[in-house]
Design a binder for these strands. Sequence first.
DNA 1: ACACAAAGCTTCGAATTATC
DNA 2: GATAATTCGAAGCTTTGTGT
Length: 281
Amino acid sequence: MSNEEHSESEFYYPEVENEEYETNFYQFHDDNVNEYVQRNSQEEIDIFISEKKSVNTVKKTTTDMNAFDRYLAEINKQYLNLNILYLPAQELDHLLSKFFKDIRKLNGEKYEPGTISSFQRSIQRFLSDNKSQFNILRDKEFEMSRQVLAAKRKILVNKAGKGNKPNATRSLTQEEEDKLFECGLFGMSGPEVLQRTMWWFLALHFGFRARDESRKLCWGDIQLQRNTDGPEMLVWLCERGTKTRNGQENGHQRSFQPKIYATGSESHRPVEMSKAIVQSK
DNA sequence: ACACAAAGCTTCGAATTATC
DNA sequence: GATAATTCGAAGCTTTGTGT
């Protein structure tokens, strides 16, 4: 993976904390109550929340809503620019059913079953984001569209041979990794190669997500350390949040700092990894 | 037959890659 | 730049396994 080119959209990190929200308790009670209330109007609170929404999910939701809108406009011109938020449940359920049953890719081919299911979730996100009370995944009013989706998935698998993950990736073999070192794509022969190799080690040993965590990483987050008698090691001191570790209360936390040990050619499992980790439920 | 644990599926949000 | 497909991690359920 080359890090030379970045598209604009990849630079949505890091986020800056807004210290104004750390409002002083006494100031709040003395005066300025109106001002406080105004400043923290519903609109501002909504913005505060939505700024923390995942860019990728937002993009996914709009893309899929485009597909739904596209389909509706196709089946009937009167549905052009239809706002589904104003539809009664039965009608929405009906349109969803047709959508799940007949929707095709832009090139006319059939979708993978997983993709159609993800449309359903995107539509639910759209509804929830816009404060709709409907839950198309649970409400009994949407039982029909759920059944259509289930049937559609079966048909795609049984009749069209879909759902076999034709593009699934596989992990690298040891030989393939060795080859990358041998042919000089991994190694220490230059800045780009070094950066690429560092990316590989960080992903491999720290479990970095491919782009996300590499981009968030700041100078000083990883430190070269050495135990008195042990080998040199890289220690990951400061984690900047991932999809699954992002500061939620009672959220998952690491029980130790991840480390990469210098080993020469052997590989050693870090001591902490050999201990059983007891998870509280 | 019962209780409980372990294994296995499903669901959801999110991130990524591939492709055109 | 949008679209399509996949992957990942966690949580919640459901099924299966096992000891008594």
